[in-house]
């Protein structure tokens, strides 16, 4: 595939646009490394920073522990977004 072709494909979302139900709240899973991102999240707490409450953090011993299947299972159960920090 050419670089151009890839770019064009990236831009289009495979999802169909839809109406957002009123009771919907973004449900996000954050996979965080115990030693870096999780500690950063701790620090954010200690610093009493406020941020949007939609992200649920899952602590991994290391982001290397992340497996394809963890992310897929999250989506399978209807999660709206996943981010990994480490």
């Amino acid at each position: 595939m050419t670089a151009d072709g890839e770019k064009i494909e990236e831009r289009q979302s495979p999802e169909k646009p839809c109406e957002i139900p009123p009771d919907w709240k973004a449900n996000i899973i954050a996979f965080a490394c115990h030693y870096c991102a999780f500690a950063a999240a701790d620090l954010a707490g200690v610093m009493r920073l406020s941020y949007l409450p939609n992200s649920k953090v899952i602590r991994l011993p290391c982001t290397g522990k992340l497996d394809h299947i963890y992310v897929l299972r999250a989506f399978e159960r209807g999660i709206d977004g996943v981010f990994v920090a480490g």
């Binding site: 497996d67 394809h68 299947i69 897929l72 299972r73 989506f75 399978e76």
Partner: peptide, 13 residues
């Protein structure tokens, strides 16, 4: 077996 897990997940979705 890992790919089986991934494929099963995709098919469930």
């Amino acid at each position: 077996n890992k790919e089986a897990g991934i494929l099963a997940s995709l098919l469930r979705m």
